[in-house]
Amino acid sequence: MDDISDNTALMQLSRDRRLAARVVAGDERALRQFVDEYFPRLYRYAHHRLRNPADVDDVVQVVLAQAARRLETYRGEATLLTWLIRICRHEISRQLHRDTRDSDLMVPFLNDDLLRSVVESIEVEGGSTPEADSRRLELIGLIQTALDQLPERYASALEMKYIEGLNSIEIAELMQISDEATQSLLARARRAFKEVCGEALHTALQV
């Protein structure tokens, strides 16, 4: 990671520490922010791994109960999202009787060659066999989890550009920033996306 990334990560950790402390102290706005920011991400994380809506509901309720009880012990060693996902992963593993000693999925870095080979493997796997479908679902889960690891503005900008097909002027209008700032935001978002989903895709596709 370069200096800028290091600083960004430190700022994120510091902001997460403050947010957790404010939630524990009973600050209503902080609680609202916590709910709006992290509940949808936990939902998607659990949903991609469990599929059954009832299981997702059960697991996330347990995760949130544990998180509420342990939040006062959060010291900002990892981001709040990573901290929550660890609890969630442990709970899912417990539910599925799986070994919980798996390594983190979100290990940076996706280089250009790796990105290309992942893309080529998707293009080759165009058919619809059960195995290909299963790999595709796994990949979708990984990509969406990677998006959730990004700051929300990055993820939204990437979705608008690549999924909805909006151009930078249209995105600028929606985000209420200049076209130049949007292009810069998109460049940073692309870089961050490549970083966070690299190793996850590498592992999933065994390229």
């Binding site: 709910v35 509940f39 990437l158």
Partner: peptide, 27 residues
């Protein structure tokens, strides 16, 4: 390449409001 990956994944699912309310209550 990024476009292909994101198109494959599609938009992220939204958390149903009912679940959000229940979970907030638990939390």
């Amino acid at each position: 390449d990024i476009s292909l990956l994101l198109k494959l994944a599609g938009p992220r699912e939204k958390l149903p409001q009912e679940l959000k309310q229940n979970w907030e209550s638990v939390f």
